[in-house]
């Protein structure tokens, strides 16, 4: 058991999130919520910016706008309303759309996601202005932030996710 736990830390990058080369029928896969977290530092994120998926501006999109954008896009991309020949493509698009909606419509998940996006952009900025005092401070702040975030996550994982706590509560009730 212990072995399996420690081995997991080496590399557990989900591979179904990437296109399966041996099966051309499969849609090029998307990044699901769970795998998105695991690969959040990867380069794939550039292409699946949730705000871009929903055609929204990251700065001022309110909850209502996010929901509206999701519905409007769902009416266009859900496999039920697309031609059957587009099934693979529309399924992939819709799943991505839903992942974006799910993250951005949840205030906590959205904040975290925004932070990840912000981290990337400020990271780029500081690289450009390397040596500049402001950049250094930014980087330092980013690092502190990142450390805090990691420890928070670890803490959160100790007593499980919100979902797992709810499930165990429900189980006790039953």
């Amino acid at each position: 058991m212990d072995m399996s736990l420690s081995s997991s830390l080496l590399n557990s990058k989900p591979f179904f999130s990437r296109p399966l080369a041996n099966n051309s029928r499969r849609p090029p896969a998307f990044i699901s919520i769970t795998s998105c977290k695991a690969t959040s530092m990867g380069s794939e994120k550039e292409t699946t910016n949730f705000y871009k998926v929903l055609s929204l501006s990251p700065h001022n999109a309110c909850d209502e706008e996010i929901k509206r954008a999701y519905r409007t896009m769902a009416l266009r991309y859900h496999p039920d309303v697309c031609h059957p020949s587009m099934k693979e493509e529309s399924t992939r698009k819709f799943v991505q759309l839903h992942a974006a909606y799910k993250t951005l419509s949840d205030p906590v998940a959205r904040e975290e996601y925004d932070f990840q996006l912000g981290l990337n952009s400020s990271g780029r900025k500081s690289k450009m202005s390397f040596g500049d005092e402001g950049g250094m401070r930014n980087r330092w702040q980013d690092q502190i932030f990142e450390l805090k975030r990691k420890s928070n996550r670890r803490k959160a994982q100790k007593d499980g996710s919100w979902g797992s706590r709810m499930r165990s509560q429900n189980r006790q009730k039953n």
């Binding site: 989900p14 179904f16 896969a29 769970t34 795998s35 819709f94």
Partner: peptide, 10 residues
Amino acid sequence: PARKELVFTT
């Protein structure tokens, strides 16, 4: 539609 995965070991 949905697609989810989990990692298991021996």
